[in-house]
Amino acid sequence: MIQTEPTHERLHRQLVSRAEEEGLLDLAYRTVGSPVGELLLVRSGTGLVRVAFESEDHDRVLGSLADRISPRILSSPRALDRVAFQLDQYFAGTRHEFTVEHDLGLVRGFQRTVLERLERIPWGQTESYSEVARDVGNPKAVRAVGTACAVNPIPLIVPCHRVLRSDGTTGNYRGGREAKRLLLALEGSR
Protein backbone atom coordinates (compact mmCIF):
# COMPACT_ATOMS: atom_id res chain seq x y z
CA MET A 1 0.00 0.00 0.00
CA ILE A 2 2.89 2.38 -0.65
CA GLN A 3 2.73 5.05 -3.32
CA THR A 4 5.34 4.73 -6.03
CA GLU A 5 5.73 8.46 -6.51
CA PRO A 6 8.68 9.66 -4.40
CA THR A 7 6.86 12.79 -3.20
CA HIS A 8 4.15 10.66 -1.65
CA GLU A 9 6.63 8.27 -0.09
CA ARG A 10 8.36 11.21 1.56
CA LEU A 11 5.09 12.79 2.70
CA HIS A 12 3.94 9.44 4.06
CA ARG A 13 7.15 8.93 6.02
CA GLN A 14 6.92 12.44 7.48
CA LEU A 15 3.30 11.82 8.42
CA VAL A 16 4.30 8.63 10.27
CA SER A 17 7.03 10.49 12.19
CA ARG A 18 4.73 13.34 13.17
CA ALA A 19 2.00 10.89 14.15
CA GLU A 20 4.46 9.03 16.38
CA GLU A 21 5.68 12.24 17.99
CA GLU A 22 2.14 13.31 18.79
CA GLY A 23 1.06 9.89 20.01
CA LEU A 24 -1.44 9.46 17.18
CA LEU A 25 -0.07 6.28 15.67
CA ASP A 26 -2.02 3.57 17.47
CA LEU A 27 -1.03 0.73 15.14
CA ALA A 28 1.95 0.44 12.78
CA TYR A 29 2.33 -2.38 10.29
CA ARG A 30 4.49 -3.91 7.60
CA THR A 31 4.72 -7.17 5.70
CA VAL A 32 7.69 -9.54 5.40
CA GLY A 33 8.35 -12.47 3.12
CA SER A 34 8.92 -15.87 4.77
CA PRO A 35 9.01 -19.57 3.90
CA VAL A 36 5.41 -19.80 5.17
CA GLY A 37 4.24 -16.98 2.88
CA GLU A 38 3.98 -13.25 3.35
CA LEU A 39 3.44 -12.28 6.98
CA LEU A 40 1.68 -9.17 8.23
CA LEU A 41 3.25 -7.69 11.39
CA VAL A 42 1.32 -5.15 13.45
CA ARG A 43 2.45 -3.34 16.57
CA SER A 44 0.68 -1.20 19.13
CA GLY A 45 2.29 1.29 21.50
CA THR A 46 3.02 -1.66 23.79
CA GLY A 47 4.49 -4.11 21.32
CA LEU A 48 3.76 -6.66 18.63
CA VAL A 49 0.03 -7.22 18.70
CA ARG A 50 -0.65 -9.31 15.59
CA VAL A 51 1.13 -11.60 13.16
CA ALA A 52 -1.08 -12.74 10.28
CA PHE A 53 -0.59 -15.30 7.55
CA GLU A 54 -1.39 -14.58 3.95
CA SER A 55 -4.36 -16.96 4.08
CA GLU A 56 -6.01 -14.72 6.67
CA ASP A 57 -6.19 -11.84 4.12
CA HIS A 58 -4.06 -8.97 5.39
CA ASP A 59 -6.56 -6.27 4.43
CA ARG A 60 -9.27 -8.04 6.38
CA VAL A 61 -7.00 -8.40 9.39
CA LEU A 62 -6.19 -4.68 9.34
CA GLY A 63 -9.88 -3.86 8.96
CA SER A 64 -10.71 -5.97 11.99
CA LEU A 65 -7.90 -4.37 14.04
CA ALA A 66 -9.29 -0.95 13.05
CA ASP A 67 -12.58 -1.97 14.67
CA ARG A 68 -11.13 -3.77 17.67
CA ILE A 69 -8.23 -1.49 18.61
CA SER A 70 -8.11 1.74 16.60
CA PRO A 71 -8.43 2.90 12.98
CA ARG A 72 -5.34 5.10 13.47
CA ILE A 73 -3.27 2.63 11.47
CA LEU A 74 -0.34 3.48 9.20
CA SER A 75 2.20 1.46 7.29
CA SER A 76 5.56 1.92 9.01
CA PRO A 77 8.21 -0.68 8.11
CA ARG A 78 10.72 1.00 10.42
CA ALA A 79 8.55 0.42 13.49
CA LEU A 80 8.76 -3.31 12.86
CA ASP A 81 12.36 -3.64 11.71
CA ARG A 82 13.41 -5.50 14.82
CA VAL A 83 10.65 -8.12 14.56
CA ALA A 84 11.27 -8.55 10.84
CA PHE A 85 14.99 -9.04 11.48
CA GLN A 86 14.42 -11.62 14.21
CA LEU A 87 11.95 -13.52 12.02
CA ASP A 88 14.56 -13.64 9.24
CA GLN A 89 17.04 -15.10 11.70
CA TYR A 90 14.45 -17.57 12.94
CA PHE A 91 13.72 -18.86 9.44
CA ALA A 92 17.46 -19.01 8.73
CA GLY A 93 17.77 -21.26 11.78
CA THR A 94 20.08 -18.91 13.69
CA ARG A 95 17.56 -17.65 16.23
CA HIS A 96 15.71 -19.87 18.69
CA GLU A 97 14.10 -17.22 20.86
CA PHE A 98 12.39 -13.93 20.13
CA THR A 99 13.21 -10.88 22.22
CA VAL A 100 10.56 -8.43 21.04
CA GLU A 101 8.01 -6.65 23.18
CA HIS A 102 4.57 -8.04 22.54
CA ASP A 103 1.04 -7.28 23.46
CA LEU A 104 -1.55 -10.03 24.09
CA GLY A 105 -4.27 -7.42 24.60
CA LEU A 106 -6.46 -9.04 21.97
CA VAL A 107 -7.02 -12.13 24.13
CA ARG A 108 -8.42 -12.45 27.62
CA GLY A 109 -9.09 -14.94 30.36
CA PHE A 110 -8.30 -18.60 29.91
CA GLN A 111 -7.07 -18.14 26.34
CA ARG A 112 -4.54 -15.63 27.51
CA THR A 113 -3.38 -17.94 30.29
CA VAL A 114 -2.86 -20.69 27.70
CA LEU A 115 -0.91 -18.41 25.34
CA GLU A 116 1.31 -17.18 28.16
CA ARG A 117 2.01 -20.80 29.05
CA LEU A 118 2.93 -21.61 25.41
CA GLU A 119 5.70 -19.04 25.53
CA ARG A 120 7.53 -21.37 27.89
CA ILE A 121 7.74 -24.23 25.39
CA PRO A 122 11.28 -23.87 24.03
CA TRP A 123 12.45 -24.09 20.43
CA GLY A 124 12.62 -27.64 19.17
CA GLN A 125 10.22 -29.08 21.77
CA THR A 126 6.54 -29.88 21.59
CA GLU A 127 3.66 -30.53 23.95
CA SER A 128 0.24 -32.03 23.42
CA TYR A 129 -2.97 -30.06 23.84
CA SER A 130 -3.78 -32.18 26.91
CA GLU A 131 -0.37 -31.54 28.47
CA VAL A 132 -0.91 -27.81 28.08
CA ALA A 133 -4.39 -28.16 29.61
CA ARG A 134 -2.88 -29.94 32.58
CA ASP A 135 -0.09 -27.34 32.89
CA VAL A 136 -2.57 -24.49 33.17
CA GLY A 137 -4.39 -26.40 35.89
CA ASN A 138 -7.43 -27.37 33.86
CA PRO A 139 -6.80 -30.91 32.51
CA LYS A 140 -10.30 -31.23 31.06
CA ALA A 141 -10.00 -28.09 28.97
CA VAL A 142 -8.24 -29.78 26.05
CA ARG A 143 -10.59 -28.36 23.44
CA ALA A 144 -10.37 -24.91 24.98
CA VAL A 145 -6.58 -25.12 24.66
CA GLY A 146 -7.09 -25.94 20.98
CA THR A 147 -9.32 -22.90 20.62
CA ALA A 148 -6.77 -20.66 22.36
CA CYS A 149 -4.13 -21.84 19.89
CA ALA A 150 -6.51 -21.24 16.99
CA VAL A 151 -7.04 -17.60 17.99
CA ASN A 152 -3.41 -16.88 18.90
CA PRO A 153 -2.94 -13.30 17.60
CA ILE A 154 0.86 -13.59 17.46
CA PRO A 155 1.73 -16.99 16.01
CA LEU A 156 5.44 -17.81 15.61
CA ILE A 157 6.33 -15.43 18.45
CA VAL A 158 3.91 -17.23 20.78
CA PRO A 159 4.75 -20.72 19.53
CA CYS A 160 1.36 -22.42 19.23
CA HIS A 161 2.90 -24.49 16.43
CA ARG A 162 4.70 -26.44 19.18
CA VAL A 163 1.42 -27.90 20.42
CA LEU A 164 0.39 -31.21 18.82
CA ARG A 165 -2.41 -33.69 19.20
CA SER A 166 -1.94 -36.45 21.76
CA ASP A 167 -1.83 -39.07 19.00
CA GLY A 168 1.20 -37.25 17.61
CA THR A 169 -0.52 -35.83 14.53
CA THR A 170 0.08 -32.17 13.75
CA GLY A 171 -3.36 -30.73 14.39
CA ASN A 172 -4.73 -27.52 12.94
CA TYR A 173 -2.87 -24.27 12.53
CA ARG A 174 -3.89 -20.70 11.77
CA GLY A 175 -1.38 -20.61 8.92
CA GLY A 176 -2.43 -24.05 7.63
CA ARG A 177 -1.15 -27.52 8.48
CA GLU A 178 1.54 -27.29 5.83
CA ALA A 179 3.03 -24.22 7.55
CA LYS A 180 2.92 -25.97 10.92
CA ARG A 181 4.77 -29.00 9.51
CA LEU A 182 7.37 -26.68 7.97
CA LEU A 183 7.98 -24.90 11.29
CA LEU A 184 8.30 -28.19 13.18
CA ALA A 185 10.75 -29.47 10.57
CA LEU A 186 12.73 -26.22 10.82
CA GLU A 187 13.01 -26.72 14.56
CA GLY A 188 13.99 -30.35 14.09
CA SER A 189 11.04 -31.67 16.07
CA ARG A 190 9.65 -33.55 13.09
Binding site: M1, I2, Q3, E5, H8, L11, H12, L15, L27, Y29, L62, G63, L65, A66, D67, P71, R72, I73, L74, S75
Partner: peptide, 13 residues
Protein backbone atom coordinates in the same frame (compact mmCIF):
# COMPACT_ATOMS: atom_id res chain seq x y z
CA UNK B 1 -13.90 1.65 9.88
CA UNK B 2 -11.21 1.62 7.19
CA UNK B 3 -7.60 1.75 8.42
CA UNK B 4 -6.29 5.31 8.06
CA UNK B 5 -3.53 4.04 5.75
CA UNK B 6 -6.18 3.33 3.12
CA UNK B 7 -7.41 6.91 3.40
CA UNK B 8 -3.90 8.31 2.87
CA UNK B 9 -3.26 6.09 -0.14
CA UNK B 10 -6.65 6.72 -1.74
CA UNK B 11 -6.83 10.48 -1.22
CA UNK B 12 -3.24 11.65 -0.66
CA UNK B 13 -2.61 12.64 -4.29
Amino acid sequence: MRPFEEIVVAHGP
